Simulated assay, not measured.
Amino acid sequence: MKSGFVMLAGRSNVGKSTLLNALVGTKVAIMSEKPQTTRHPVRGVLHDPRGQIVFVDTPGVFLGKKDPVSKRLNEMVKENLEGIDAIVYVVDPTREPGNEEKYIQNLLKNSRTPIILAVNKKDIPARKKPYLEDARAIDVGQIGSVEISAKTHANLNLIVNKLFEILPVGEPFYPEQQFTDMGRKEWLEELIREKAFQYLGQELPYAVHVEVHDIEDREDGSEYVQATIYTTHENHKGMIIGKGGSKLKEIGTAARKELETVTGNKVYLDLNVKVDKNWPQRFQ
């Protein structure tokens, strides 16, 4: 049996969270087109007859930003390189390589950890990937490279096969029925934040934060969840609530429906919006 920890590395919005969910076979990381969607290292567990792989989805890199959230996210990328058995470096060939890409490549070149290069979006026609050759030419000392699609799962088996070749012999870290180390409260907070990003689109900056205050399992089998969406500005609060509460209702309804699908139980979601200019400082 093999077992080990594998870090998914790459700049923001290259598809790491989508890839994590695809590899694990269930949703453990939230997905959004907005940057800074992933704010905490999320662990997803792949169970296989050959052993167990614990994937760590890390935040992207945000150079040039001085706010507390961006600083902390960049620190997390460095911290999570410690104790990792292998790295899957995810690249998006539809986007021009920039300073963030160079920064990550420098980090990886200085690492002694085995690296697999994963060029994402194989499902997209080559004419829509102007930087495909640049991606193919990347050299961070990788032990192999593969073109994949996190969306359609194309060639993900090649990554898994290569990882089981190089991971050390060891016992599983998690029981077979466990697919993430994220707690129930944290998962709920991430789910609500995902729906906020989804329904607010480009109207709102990334600076929203969700806290679940109460989870109650009721005698009739239903679940009551009380949560607050925090933002840093009063005008942003109005955007989240929407006219007559329409946006907040959309966010709450989407989160509730997904939660009911996962649990199979009726869910009552009590969702509020508050302004707290200091939540980014608390994030540290």
Results as ranks from 00 to 15, higher is better:
residue 160 V to D: 05
residue 261 T to M: 13
residue 253 T to K: 09
residue 212 V to N: 08
residue 205 P to Q: 10
residue 181 D to V: 00
residue 192 I to G: 00
residue 182 M to G: 13
residue 211 E to N: 15
residue 145 S to A: 14
residue 239 M to P: 05
residue 187 W to F: 15
residue 253 T to F: 06
residue 258 E to G: 08
residue 248 L to P: 07
residue 195 K to M: 02
residue 268 Y to V: 14
residue 231 T to V: 10
residue 214 D to M: 11
residue 208 V to W: 01
residue 181 D to N: 08
residue 219 E to P: 10
residue 208 V to P: 01
residue 184 R to V: 09
residue 167 L to A: 04
residue 245 G to W: 05
residue 254 A to H: 06
residue 220 D to Y: 01
residue 246 S to G: 04
residue 177 Q to G: 13
residue 150 A to R: 02
residue 194 E to M: 00
residue 247 K to A: 10
residue 212 V to L: 06
residue 220 D to I: 07
residue 146 V to M: 10
residue 211 E to Q: 15
residue 167 L to N: 08
residue 172 P to W: 03
residue 221 G to M: 09
residue 161 N to Y: 13
residue 212 V to H: 11
residue 258 E to R: 12
residue 256 R to H: 09
residue 230 Y to V: 09
residue 151 K to V: 13
residue 232 T to M: 14
residue 266 K to F: 10
residue 254 A to D: 02
residue 245 G to F: 05
residue 177 Q to W: 10
residue 273 V to M: 05
residue 245 G to P: 03
residue 198 Q to N: 14
residue 260 E to M: 13
residue 237 K to R: 04
residue 227 A to E: 04
residue 272 N to V: 13
residue 174 Y to L: 06
residue 213 H to D: 12
residue 219 E to F: 11
residue 183 G to L: 02
residue 179 F to E: 07
residue 195 K to A: 00
residue 267 V to Y: 06
residue 209 H to N: 14
residue 168 P to V: 10
residue 193 R to H: 10
residue 263 T to F: 09
residue 192 I to A: 04
residue 213 H to P: 05
residue 151 K to G: 07
residue 181 D to T: 00
residue 260 E to D: 08
residue 275 V to Q: 02
residue 226 Q to E: 15
residue 149 S to N: 02
residue 170 G to C: 03
residue 177 Q to H: 15
residue 185 K to P: 07
residue 213 H to G: 14
residue 266 K to G: 11
residue 184 R to Y: 15
residue 242 G to N: 11
residue 188 L to S: 11
residue 253 T to A: 01
residue 148 I to E: 02
residue 268 Y to R: 12
residue 234 E to R: 13
residue 256 R to N: 04
residue 182 M to P: 10
residue 193 R to G: 07
residue 229 I to H: 02
residue 204 L to A: 01
residue 188 L to I: 13
residue 222 S to Y: 01
residue 240 I to N: 04
residue 252 G to H: 04
residue 267 V to A: 09
residue 171 E to L: 11
residue 255 A to L: 01
residue 205 P to K: 06
residue 182 M to W: 10
residue 205 P to D: 01
residue 180 T to C: 00
residue 261 T to Y: 13
residue 232 T to A: 05
residue 206 Y to W: 10
residue 242 G to Q: 07
residue 195 K to V: 05
residue 248 L to H: 04
residue 212 V to R: 04
residue 145 S to N: 11
residue 227 A to M: 06
residue 265 N to R: 15
residue 157 N to T: 12
residue 235 N to F: 14
residue 175 P to F: 08
residue 211 E to L: 14
residue 244 G to T: 03
residue 260 E to K: 05
residue 171 E to V: 12
